[in-house]
Structures are given as structure tokens and as C-alpha cells.
């Protein structure tokens, strides 16, 4: 097994093209997957030296483009980013642990493998490892999806994807079929064997965020058992923009519930016109109640219907500074 260390994107793509080599960003999940037997050993193309993947670039229109190798810690700590994209920074601050945030990257977070304990246990085969079934579906899926898009039942693991979905961010993908695409299009709930749609040989280069909105209010919540350092049962992000004291734009996204992060357009629509600092009207309550219609719980994930509603309620209450109940 060898490691190559290209210094520019062209060389990296060449070394990945048809070679069976595997790109490596922060290497945290890759190392864990190799240790657990999720992945077979293969040659590695280390992207750390590829200059095009680094850095935060502020575009003339005021929007930011984030290199795929930006670490999670940089997303959490950069004051200008936090000011412009508070939901992204809030999300980055709460995921994993300080040691992992120092090493893990934006691109790696978006493209990591799911956390299913069957996938990561060598005793089981599943769709992801060449099998033809999902042992979690009929087995112990306490942490599984509540929006069952089948056939795999592992929720998408990327918290940053939830936040970026709430920003309608786009990603630049290099390699075959080079293009800019929406974050949402990185994922395909129906593909049973993959956690993202990139093909071997493609590299996620950067993430482009929209022009920051003045006075954006944002909140992120991770529902977990322990207080920190735990994968979410459900996570939610919201960002709201006010105009003349009322919500003029709202984005709400959830994770931990489906094979992909999800936007909640019904809740977003109901929020329009809501006023911060007060209790909201019946439309918002109804939109929260209607989240149940989105759900198709597995035998053991029915609790996530309530928990999703509760987590969304929490972020909305915090973003809108609704008085305590």
C-alpha cells in the first residue's frame, strides 16, 4: 500500500482516475473504517497538500467559498464565518470532540460513512459491504431512521450537511462530470449502498455559501443522551431572517431522521410572518404537528417522531427568542 501526496488538483485527479486509489482528507473516518473492516485497504491519495482544497475565500458579492479541507474547528472558530453564517458555526461547534474537530474536514464530514453499528461490525454484511439485505431493519435499529426511504435504515451522519442544506449551499465537484451542484444533490436516499453519490475519481473541491443575510438568527440543536460528544438521535438547524420585525425568510432542516438531511418546507412556510419574542400562532403548531405525516417509523424509532418535533421546536424557540414555557 502506498500513499501519494499530490500538490495540485490536477495531479490528485490523475492519481485517482481509474487507479482504485482512495482520496483522504482528515483521515479520521477513513482510519476508523479501515480498522472496522468497512473498507478494504487500498492505495491512498492524500489530499492534504492540494492547494485548491484549502482556504476560505470571500467572493466579491460577499459570499464565502470554503475549501473542502477547511477543518471543522476552523468553521467553528472563524469569527467572520460565524458572523456571516451563524447556523453553520453553531453546528460545527457541537459536533464530535475538540480533538476530532481539529483533524476532521468539511469535505470529509459531508462524505463520511454512516454510523450504523451493523455496518461497522465485521460480523455482518449489509448493502454497503456487498450484502443483499439490511440487518438493522429486522434487528436492533434504535438509532435508525424515522423517515423510511429504504432499503438502508441508517440516518445520514453529516451534521454540516444539515446546516448547509439550510443555507441552500452548493458544492463544486471535480473529476469526471465536473460541476457545481446543490448540497442536497450529494445524497440519494434510495441508493442503498452509499452515503453520497460521488463516483470514484471525483473530488469535492469546495462549498459555496449564499450571500450572508443581514441580521440572520440561527440555532442548532443536537438531541442526545449525554451532554456532549455523541452522535445525534435527531438534530435540527434553523435560520430566520426578519423584515420589519417579522420573519421574512425561514429555513429549517433536520438530521438523524432519514437517509439524507431534510428540509422542512411546511414549517418554513408557517414561520413566515412570525414575530420574535412572542409565542407563535396556530399555523406553526400545525406545521409541527404535521411533521408526523412525514414519518414512517421503524418498530423501534417511533420516539423520533416526537423527538424531531421537539428538536425543531427547540431551535425555533431559541432562534425566535420565544419566552419560556
Amino acid at each position: 500500500m502506498t500513499t501519494t501526496r499530490p500538490e495540485d488538483l490536477g495531479r490528485a485527479l490523475a492519481q485517482l482516475d481509474g487507479t482504485g486509489a482512495r482520496p483522504r482528507a482528515g483521515g479520521t473516518d477513513l482510519t476508523a473504517c479501515l480498522a472496522a473492516g468497512v473498507l478494504e485497504p487500498a492505495p491512498v491519495v492524500d489530499l492534504a497538500g492540494v492547494r485548491e482544497l484549502h482556504g476560505v475565500e470571500w467572493l466579491p458579492d460577499g459570499a464565502a467559498r470554503l475549501g473542502a479541507l477547511t477543518t471543522v474547528d476552523e468553521l467553528a472558530a472563524d469569527p467572520r464565518l460565524a458572523g456571516a453564517y451563524p447556523a453553520l458555526a453553531a453546528t460545527a461547534r457541537e459536533l464530535a470532540t475538540p480533538q476530532v474537530r481539529n483533524a476532521a474536514t468539511l469535505g470529509g464530514n459531508l462524505l463520511q460513512r454512516n454510523r450504523c453499528w451493523y455496518l461497522r461490525n465485521p460480523a455482518f454484511d449489509c448493502f454497503h459491504t456487498g450484502g443483499d439485505s439490511c440487518p438493522a431493519r429486522g434487528g436492533d435499529h434504535l438509532y435508525g431512521v424515522v423517515v423510511d426511504q429504504g432499503p438502508c435504515v441508517a440516518p445520514h451522519p453529516s451534521s454540516l450537511a444539515v446546516a448547509l442544506l439550510a443555507y441552500d449551499a452548493s458544492v463544486l465537484v471535480a473529476g469526471a462530470d465536473e460541476q457545481e451542484r446543490a448540497v442536497a444533490d450529494l445524497y440519494d436516499a434510495a441508493a442503498p449502498a452509499r452515503d453520497h453519490v460521488l463516483e470514484p475519481g471525483q473530488v469535492l473541491v469546495s462549498v459555496r455559501l449564499p450571500v450572508p443575510r443581514e441580521g440572520e438568527r440561527a440555532a442548532y440543536r443536537r438531541a442526545t443522551g449525554r451532554s456532549r460528544a455523541e452522535w445525534p438521535l435527531v438534530e435540527a438547524v434553523t435560520r430566520v431572517v426578519l423584515h420589519e420585525g417579522r420573519v421574512s425568510h425561514a429555513a429549517v432542516a433536520v438530521g438523524g431522521v432519514a437517509r439524507t438531511p431534510l428540509r422542512l418546507p411546511g414549517v418554513e412556510a408557517a414561520l413566515t410572518g412570525a414575530r420574535p419574542g412572542r409565542h407563535w400562532g396556530p399555523e406553526v403548531e400545525e406545521s409541527l404537528a404535521a411533521l408526523a405525516d412525514l414519518c414512517s417509523p421503524l418498530p423501534a424509532t417511533g420516539y423520533k417522531v416526537d423527538l424531531m418535533r421537539a428538536t425543531v421546536r427547540d431551535v425555533l424557540e431559541r432562534a425566535l427568542e420565544v419566552p419560556g414555557r
Partner: peptide, 8 residues
């Protein structure tokens, strides 16, 4: 600070 068990 870095988790050296996850660092290649």
C-alpha cells in the same frame, strides 16, 4: 490536541 488513534 489530536486523537492519534485516528491519525494515519
Amino acid at each position: 490536541p489530536t486523537a492519534s488513534c485516528l491519525l494515519p
